[in-house]
Design a protein around this nucleic acid. Structure first.
Lengths: 160, 160
DNA sequence: AAGACTTCGTAAGCATGCTTATGTTTTGCG
DNA sequence: CGCAAAACATAAGCATGCTTACGAAGTCTT
């Protein structure tokens, strides 16, 4: 151990948030290693259960990732025979996503692991803090989603 | 618009946290695009300013990433002539990291952008909420760092 | 001193996220 | 109808994170 104290650069909340997210992801994937599914793949399946038949673009928007990001996750899920892409009969540009029955039990397993991992992370925090955290993060997500889209493209530029 | 309500799967705090971190990162990189530095590279430089001459392994531990992850970031920083690897005179396994003078002003620029991005994300949240958030995340980080290391390797293997 | 074990940095290979560019299809305007 | 514009999915290429595996260099044991 050196004598240098290096007091850390006051982890600016941005870094802190990123660290927590990364560690949570890491821990989850440690716990879920046996299942052969990553966290992102699970997230796709979980949403799919609620919205089977959704088009890739729509799901990407729901997940707030870029369409190409989702496309690659779906590639792997299709390779694993957990998901099917089916053409839309009306619009041949669109591919709709459907779950294979094998995916269902897997989703439940992931859920259990997710709950356990979350419990590890939140240990020692009372329910009030958890609620508070959820609420604050919700606000931040809204702020950021808006900032990203308006600052990025001025898509519709409706301003209202 | 379809008539399907799909009420979202109650973004389990894990997902929410991940989303916020991802969007914050995305937004930061949008804002910082002109500087030619990514967030991770900035983080390395920022720590380096406090702890010049640190060995790669030590810095990786400080950042709580794997050594290989840091090695690749340093590769790019060295390519950009912002950082130097220098051999340790005593231990030839070790490479110590030093900043080039060009990095200093860059760090300051990044700091400004970081502050601005954080402000965007936290808009509408009172200072009390921000403090609360920081505190809660700190607890979670501690929990997770511990869970990751004990659950991952049983390093010290307390009882076999 | 020699062999084993550990530590440091790195290589290889994968998954996820991004941006930018492409091809295909649908739509919309003349 | 026919061509331009928009929308959907994908390809290509990069950065970051991981795991696993390795070579080189210290350290420890015998």
């Amino acid at each position: 151990m050196s004598a240098i104290p290096h007091d850390l650069p006051a982890p600016t909340l941005g870094f802190l948030l990123n660290d927590v997210a990364r560690l949570l992801r890491k821990r989850f994937e440690q716990n879920a290693k046996g299942l052969g599914l990553t966290r992102a793949q699970w997230q796709v399946l979980a949403h799919l259960r609620r919205a089977e038949g959704i088009a890739q673009g729509g799901l990407a928007e729901l997940l707030e990732v870029e369409p190409i990001t989702l496309a690659r996750i779906v590639d792997r899920l299709e390779d694993a025979a957990l998901v099917e892409r089916r053409p839309d009969p009306k619009d041949r540009r669109i591919k709709r996503l459907f779950m294979r029955p094998e995916a269902l039990s897997l989703i439940d397993d992931m859920q259990v692991i997710g709950d356990a991992t979350r419990a590890e992370a939140l240990e020692g925090l009372p329910a009030a803090d958890r609620d508070h955290l959820t609420r604050i993060l919700g606000v931040m997500k809204t702020n950021l989603a808006q900032a990203c889209s308006t600052g990025c493209r001025q898509k519709e530029a409706v301003h209202g």
